[in-house]
Design a binder for these strands. Sequence first.
RNA 1: GGCGGCGUACCCAAGUGGCUAAGGGAGAGGUCUGCAAAACCUUUAUGCAGCGGUUCGAAUCCGCUCGCCGCCUCCA
Length: 485
Amino acid sequence: MKIFNTLTGRKEEFVPLTPNKVGIYACGVTVYDHCHIGHARSAIVFDVITRYLRYKGFDVKYVRNFTDIDDKIINRAREEGITWDAVAAKYTGEYYKDMDMLGVGRADVEPKATEHIAEMINIIKGLIDKGYAYEAEGNVYFSVDRFSEYGKLSKRNREEMIAGARVEVDERKINPLDFALWKRSKEGEPSRESPWGPGRPGWHIECTAMSIKHLGETFDIHGGGADLLFPHHENEIAQSEAYTGKPFARYWVHNGFITIDREKMSKSLGNFFTIKEVLDKFDPEVVRFFLLSTHYRSPIEFSDEQLREAESSIDRYYSTVIRVEDFIERANNLKDELSNAGKIFENRLISFRQNFEQAMDDDFNTALALGHVFELIRETNRFLDKRPSGLKDGELLLKTGELLSEAGNILNIFNKTPREWYLSLMKLKNIGITEKDISEKISERQGARKHKNWNLADAIRKELEDKGIILEDKKDRTDWKVMAG
RNA sequence: GGCGGCGUACCCAAGUGGCUAAGGGAGAGGUCUGCAAAACCUUUAUGCAGCGGUUCGAAUCCGCUCGCCGCCUCCA
């Protein structure tokens, strides 16, 4: 299995520190507001990575933190007129609501910054003792000049960064790039006691403390959005490796951004959609599918049109599932042998799992993996069109269903029954008609069709179509579905 | 200014040295159907931003040019 490592800038063979075990840490969110779709991307990417690693048989320990104390939380508390911890609690709850909807699983450990203050203070003390950090007026800073490898992740050197001149000037810092490990709190701000007086931890130190505590001083994978690469992850490496004297994370994995009109989606630009806004219009599987249909390191342009296309793709999937289930349900009086079409199909089926894994093994190429899923979908439909009749043919289709749901479990999509899918679409698209109404219309139309009253039959079909319901006449019945896309 | 990435069909998107350049959406034609829908088949890049170079061979490696974006400040 290969993973692109930001640290080396190359795809590398993934070899865990301890055979068969994987420790993975992903930077979570600061709980001060509702999450937007960019947060969803990061969460889904690492969700799929952990699911796949587990599928491959690794014993995975996945840690994802909550930053629950920070300037933004404090500001938000002022705005909302509630305490900072109430803000954190509120948006932690909102985060879980969003992630549960999106099918993002819980991490094995979900540490909070505020629960690791003691660990952070210990590390800061250690860094001061080793001469990597210094105190100034109740603040503690990390001295980047003392860590010679500073910049190795983001591939820049100190001089260049200072030349960039966008670093904040702070008289108390020796080097403008030095970053706070501990910040003295101002009057009225939340604070904890420390050897340097009341204050709170800097942002980066929490991830060092929590990853080391839960995964050890050296662990396998550290992930997050590409915007965390600098300074956050660079600083994490500096303070962690300075403190332990050992390599920190071995593979650094960064997901790309979501863009709107080709610009990065961000809070500050205001060009974002919250997860809740998107889920008001699209099924969670559509959102996941959309995000996984592009490689995780590439940017994704977000638009309703893209989501509608994803919806059409998923609809194609469920339409095929219906056909497969129909066949299996009605498979009786089957002949023993495998048809010729079945023999061809069997070969395609055998290569599917291999293709899927090959794609996922290559730096989690979900886009290619989904391509293979749809290749199988086409082969399945082609097979069904040949009117298979053997007992073995039925077994093949049963196997197809299993393989597809296995792939679906890894990506955590395609988990609905077709009926659930259409009910979800009905709800999201505000179809102003009930299932019962539809059934009645279908019976009425069946009557008309029996008497070859095509005008009436077509009128009823048109009436439903105008409401977004498509009818499909089959051999022995008429099915309905919601217009997708 | 420094560093990094991207540019593949009408749209989205895999592919990063070698069989016919995946897959999805959209369009056109066909099969099936009372007609549809779905499905399937055919079709839509002798071509991968442009120009050079390396190589027996390049979308894929190198150089230059053009265009777009990101990071260097909180940010998934």
